[in-house]
Amino acid sequence: MPAHHRSALWVPLFDELADPLVVARLAAEAEEAGWDGFFVWDRLTWPAPVERVADPWISLAAVATATGSLRLGPMVTPVARRRPAKLARETVSLDQLSGGRLTLGVGLGGDVYGAEFARTGEQVDDRVRAEMLDETLGILTSAWSGRPVRHRGPHYVIDDLAFLPAPVQRPRVPIWAAGYAGRRRPLHRAARVDGFFPVELRHPDQLAEIDETIRGLRPDPTAPYDIAVPLPPGADPAAYVAAGATWCLTEFEPEAMTLDHVRGVLGDGPAVPAPEEVASS
């Protein structure tokens, strides 16, 4: 069991954080305070009282230039409303700009909060979005190799196009796949990539089961693998680290979030697990 974990902030780019310069300064402060990562939501909209929303890719570019060591990325991007060729270019440019610090969080997205798919004419069927996600992950892996991509699938066509330069990170940019903690299908997808981001995780025991399931599904269970767990500010991560978490992401409720609150949490620095709990694992 990993006794060490890394800590990140996970922020919605809403209202006071809808300004990329503000977010870049926050990330620089987080790096100074000892955090290991800085991840941002990728949303088009959110219900009231949220009014202002920033673009994650522009914000992450600002974060990349303001920091030197933080791991960064969208957590998570709803891949079905992204064009794979555009996503390939964006991810490589961001990986280059950050010197190889991008982690790409991917997921289905959904219309539960704000109906952003229905209201922009995007695909609302979960099953079809899952197909689009899996197809895009295959395209990205090919694109990041630097070799010409020849893809003709049910949703996308890329006809003999090379995507250069290649990412700084080899063999590819790490991908973390999100999924509801109680469902099997997302675990199969996550086992094919580099990490899992559980949604609606309720207990460390649930995480231990997930960790065991994913290891059983992976071609090489001993290869490095990340499980990133969202936790509220100030929560002791010890039980989750003991259950297999390699990253703990401090989350913020968008309706109650203020810039001062985020700054206060990051200034306190990452939560350190109680030593006796980690030792007992």
Rank of each mutant, 00 (worst) to 15 (best):
A271T: 15
V262H: 01
R185E: 15
P233M: 03
A239N: 05
P171R: 03
V229P: 00
E251W: 10
T222Q: 12
P233L: 02
H261F: 13
E255H: 14
A178Y: 03
A235P: 11
A228Q: 02
W247V: 11
Y225I: 01
E251I: 11
D268G: 13
L231T: 11
P230Y: 12
G244S: 13
W176G: 02
I175N: 05
H203V: 07
L266A: 03
G264C: 01
V265H: 06
V173K: 09
D260E: 04
H261N: 01
V241F: 04
R184N: 12
A256F: 09
D268E: 15
P224M: 01
R185K: 15
D211W: 15
T213Q: 11
Y240N: 06
R218G: 08
A191L: 00
D260G: 03
E251P: 02
L266Q: 14
R170G: 09
P171I: 10
A235R: 06
H203R: 11
G264S: 09
A235V: 09
C248D: 07
Y180C: 10
P221T: 13
P219F: 05
P254Q: 06
T213F: 05
V241I: 02
P237T: 13
G179P: 03
R192Y: 04
F196Q: 10
R189H: 05
V229A: 03
D226Q: 07
P270S: 14
A245S: 12
A191V: 08
P254Y: 05
L187V: 00
L201Y: 12
A242M: 09
D268R: 14
L249H: 04
E253C: 08
D226T: 10
D260F: 01
D220A: 04
T213P: 08
G179H: 08
V265K: 06
P237W: 12
G267W: 01
G179D: 02
A239V: 03
D260V: 00
R183S: 14
G182L: 10
R170H: 13
V199S: 02
D194V: 13
R218M: 06
A235L: 05
P198C: 10
F197D: 00
A239D: 12
E209Q: 15
A190E: 07
A256N: 11
V199W: 01
A271K: 04
G216A: 12
E251F: 08
R170M: 11
V229S: 05
T250C: 04
P198M: 05
T258S: 13
P174R: 04
V199F: 10
V199D: 06
H203C: 02
L207S: 14
A271S: 14
T222W: 07
A228N: 01
H188V: 15
Y240P: 11
